[in-house]
């Protein structure tokens, strides 16, 4: 049985996929920063940023609806920001029936702004993740001065992630197969402590197995000459064309930010 992750990479072979990974990582980060710096209530700028992400989706040959749908990850967090609607001082738009809470105009504007900014940022992240293979992203981070050891740890994690996750699935399936359930009766799953102990022991087992595996992996590496030093491929020169292409959305984004502050 294979574990199905929501791995967000989609290989469409588009021009965005061929853009230098370093340019894409820096560009995505700076675009999200620009969105974060845009003041509250600047909906014209938000529409501009949204147009950029949609253009990016079309260039990347990704379904724009998919990009929008994936940016809904921010919705559960709306619960944290919705309180603004009822707590900010200022002009009152109305009151909530039954509860008697007042709806603040400034609070509502702020809440809607936060949701817009959050969704646009998520769309930028979707474009980066869907168009950049994870190994390319790691390589880019390594050349962008992220500590080599951390990059190596993350790439090891990525290499064994699916193996360990499937081990977790096997462990829990083995446990489930030892738990008899009478057909037609609701499954009795024991007390809270019992359930926590079962899950805790599975996690402990997973850890012990991962420790043991890391020992074997290390020995295999040592046998092949590993001396504790992490080596990365030398970065090829950054092509001027890629940098220029990356500058286009950045300049437009800066323009939107300046216009919104005007």
């Amino acid at each position: 049985m294979h574990f199905h992750f929501a791995d967000a990479y989609e290989d469409t072979g588009s021009p965005l996929h061929h853009l230098d990974a370093r340019v894409k990582v820096v560009l995505a980060f700076l675009m999200i920063l620009l969105v974060a710096l845009t003041p509250m209530g600047a909906f014209g700028a938000y529409i501009g940023f949204f147009a950029i992400t949609m253009a990016g989706a079309l260039i990347a040959r990704l379904d724009p609806l998919m990009v929008i749908r994936r940016s809904f990850v921010a919705l559960p967090f709306a619960a944290a920001a919705i309180t603004l609607v009822f707590t900010m001082p200022g002009p009152v738009l109305g009151t909530v029936p039954l509860l008697g809470w007042t709806i603040s105009a400034v609070g509502l504007l702020r809440f809607v702004s936060i949701m817009f900014k959050s969704m646009i940022s998520a769309q930028v992240a979707v474009l980066l993740i869907a168009s950049t293979h994870f190994t390319d992203m790691l390589w880019a981070l390594g050349t962008l001065r992220v500590p080599k050891v951390l990059v190596a740890v993350v790439s090891f994690m990525y290499r064994y992630l699916f193996l360990i996750a499937e081990e977790a699935v096997r462990l829990s399936r083995a446990r489930d197969s030892r738990s008899a359930v009478i057909g037609g009766h609701p499954a009795y799953s024991g007390s809270l402590i019992f359930r926590a102990r079962t899950t805790g022991h599975l996690i402990g087992s997973l850890f012990a197995r991962s420790f043991a595996r890391s020992e074997r992996v290390y020995q295999a590496m040592a046998a092949r000459g590993y001396q504790g030093e992490v080596r990365l491929l030398d970065p090829p020169p950054l092509r001027a064309r890629d940098v220029l292409v990356g500058l286009i959305p950045l300049v437009i984004g800066c323009g939107l930010l300046v216009a919104s502050l005007w």
């Binding site: 190596a152 090891f156 193996l163 890391s214 290390y218 992490v230």
Partner: peptide, 24 residues
């Protein structure tokens, strides 16, 4: 020298361990 393989595999174990749910 064990730094990278040990921490990499432990990170994978934490990730997988976070997926093991128990109903509360």
């Amino acid at each position: 020298e064990r730094q990278v393989p040990l921490m990499g595999l432990l990170a994978a174990a934490i990730f997988a361990g976070q997926m093991l749910n128990f109903t509360i």
